[in-house]
């Protein structure tokens, strides 16, 4: 297994606050890596640093061996990094189908895809995440769970090599969570490497091949889910010292 993504001593500071502190890890091709941590641990910042909506204060990020640290977000997208947003970013005035078609149109860079073809691809991705029958609705008419799925479909339409999922299960019920887990497994089986950020520990435990724990911006654990979740520092970070 070779590393598709390498995070090398990456730090991101905001005025007076270190959101991500000297984090290093590698993501292997075909792997599902779960990233967990309490609120404010720096999970979303980490995803933003990889997708390019934020740039690191120091450190290097390599994708398929090439440094992408100084590339703007759209270039990283075209290299094959797709992401979803925790706070959803649909194109509200467009139809659900056209939201996804944007990914098919632009995910591959300048090579031009015809609009018709992009919409056909988009329809397949909507079917895949279970939104097929909502294709012609406006995106802002979808409910919360629907929007989570739309985020996934938009990222998948770019046909990424690496998919970053930022809390795609938050706010979903058990049945919906199981469905999303199923979708993410299928995504991985189709050859896409996945990084999942999640709050719902139970869900991510069964899904991930490996877990990484962030706390106050620092990596405090990285390894097999069962081992990580019984680690003393991890339990302390989540439940407080006395309970541990």
């Amino acid at each position: 297994m070779s590393a598709i993504l390498e995070i090398d001593h990456v730090t991101r500071r905001f005025a007076g606050l270190v959101a991500v502190s000297d984090v290093s890890f590698a993501l292997n091709e075909g792997e599902i890596l779960g990233v967990i941590g309490p609120n404010g641990a720096g999970k979303t910042t980490l995803v933003s640093l990889i997708s390019g909506t934020l740039t690191p204060s120091s450190g290097d990020i390599r994708f398929q061996g090439q440094s992408i640290t100084s590339l703007p977000a759209f270039r990283r997208a075209r290299l094959g990094i797709g992401r979803t947003f925790q706070i959803m970013r649909p194109f509200p005035g467009l139809s659900v189908l056209d939201n996804v078609a944007v990914g098919a149109l632009f995910g591959h860079g300048e090579e031009s895809t015809a609009l018709q073809e992009a919409r056909e691809k988009a329809r397949r991705h909507l079917e895949f995440v279970g939104l097929g029958r909502f294709a012609d609705q406006r995106a802002d008419e979808l409910g919360g769970p629907g929007r989570k799925r739309l985020e996934l479909a938009k990222a998948l339409a770019m046909e990424p090599k690496l998919l970053l999922c930022d809390e795609v299960m938050a706010g979903l019920n058990h049945v919906e969570i199981d469905e999303v887990i199923d979708v993410i497994r299928k995504v991985r089986d189709s050859g896409i490497t996945v990084l999942v950020i999640e709050h719902v520990i139970k869900a991510i435990k069964s899904l991930s091949d490996r877990l990484l724990v962030l706390h106050h911006g620092e990596k405090i654990a990285d390894g097999e889910p069962d081992v990580v979740l019984s680690d003393k520092t991890v339990v302390e970070a989540y439940l407080g010292k006395r309970r541990a």
């Binding site: 997708s51 997208a77 947003f85 970013r89």
Partner: peptide
């Protein structure tokens, strides 16, 4: 509709 959303999709 959403500039940041557009950028991460390759626009």
């Amino acid at each position: 509709e959403n500039e940041e959303g557009a950028a991460v999709m390759g626009v």
